[in-house]
Nucleic acid binder design. Structure first.
Lengths: 203, 203
DNA sequence: AAAAATATCCCCTTTTTTAGGGATTGGCAT
DNA sequence: ATGCCAATCCCTAAAAAAGGGGATATTTTT
């Protein structure tokens, strides 16, 4: 029997998952936490085989919690749970050691399959997620730290000159970064750059 | 017994709701639809007392579906279901005749309470939702249709001149709208306007 | 240690936005 | 019917961004 900890703040979703595992024969829910803090508390007493970790928690984001959990227990198997809009997070979760990623709109079968695969030491990605990641790698969207910094400031309404002052660089440099961003994201100008960046979760 | 139709594309959430109503004594689920189209199909044969309508459906957005349903049957009671990030939508749903709004992270008690209230002809808003709306009205963020249109085009990277051409207006007019938007949202310039607009769900 | 990626800085011209304004129509609501 | 507000259009000068380059350090990665 695979033991599971559900970390998820939506009672409805928790109910749905519980039901699903009660009906299955190989996994059981040994704990439920509705927040990052609750998750920490539970983990002091319970060591589940797999943690189903929602990305959107009230007190902490999924990635940070994932990092934290794995720091304390590097072998912990974590399966990320999320809605579709957060593909950018998927990469980060997997990079930080999550063993899989499941969309909340996937079928019960898929979810149970994911649990099994992860328990056996594999990695699992929902079908749709794999597509999303493929798209992502096709786009080859790689933004540097500096560019992200500039992006943030641009989104806050600063001009090249103002950004330059803040970062102690030349306005021309700030402008170069901006232009590079526009090229990389295939935007038409700064406003559309901001939109695309926000859609991709870069801001 | 109150009859319910669940319109929701996440199987987990559907399970959770089903469970909740099975355990209750006064409401029962008479249908489930995972898309706008499925919802239309179901409604041809089933007339539920209340429709629980998710805002995020794969084929149509909740507001449009809400409008459509109410056009065909103005007395239909609709309870909107959503996550927290979509406050902006709440207003619109209620304006278009939804009878209430429930957050997916509210407790089963709240949800059942909402069902009861709506069935008795009242309106129901999750506690947190009411707060959100109050905040909103404090902000007094009122955007006209035209402004929203301009906003969208700006976010797609069109210049005043291009927008003017698309909408058959003068570039000066397009610019006026843009300036008004910047003032209304208290932005510094167009890029920051886009960011704020996206955060507030205007785009 | 060499290669690749990143960050930095520069130039020029044209287009676009910004920051102030102000003014007129047409529709909807009271 | 009258008043409000949305939508429309206009002006000017200054500032900023777009579009097109190119070049040199400085990290990182291999």
């Amino acid at each position: 029997m695979i033991s599971l900890l559900i970390v998820e703040d939506h009672p409805i979703v928790v109910e749905g998952l519980q039901k699903m595992f009660r009906d299955s024969s190989f996994a059981e829910v040994v704990g439920v936490a509705g927040s990052g803090q609750a998750c920490r508390d539970v983990l002091r007493w319970i060591k589940p085989d797999i943690i189903l970790l929602d990305i959107n928690l009230p007190d902490i984001n999924g990635i940070d919690l994932c990092i934290e959990i794995l720091k304390n227990n590097p072998k912990q198997k974590i399966l990320a749970l999320s809605t579709f809009d957060e593909r950018h997070v998927i990469r980060q979760m997997l990079d930080h050691g999550a063993k899989g990623y499941i969309l909340k709109n996937s079928s019960p079968e898929e979810i149970l399959e994911g649990i099994k695969v992860v328990q056996e030491g594999g990695k699992y990605l929902s079908a749709e997620t794999e597509e999303a990641l493929r798209d992502k790698s096709k786009n080859e969207l790689v933004i540097t730290r500096r560019e992200r910094e500039i992006l943030k400031l641009l989104s806050e309404g600063f001009t090249n000159a103002e950004i330059a002052e803040k970062l102690f660089i030349s306005p021309l440099t700030a402008d170069s970064h901006r232009k590079n961003l526009i090229t990389k994201l295939n935007a038409r100008n700064t406003p559309s750059l901001i939109k695309l960046a926000m859609e991709k979760g870069l801001i």
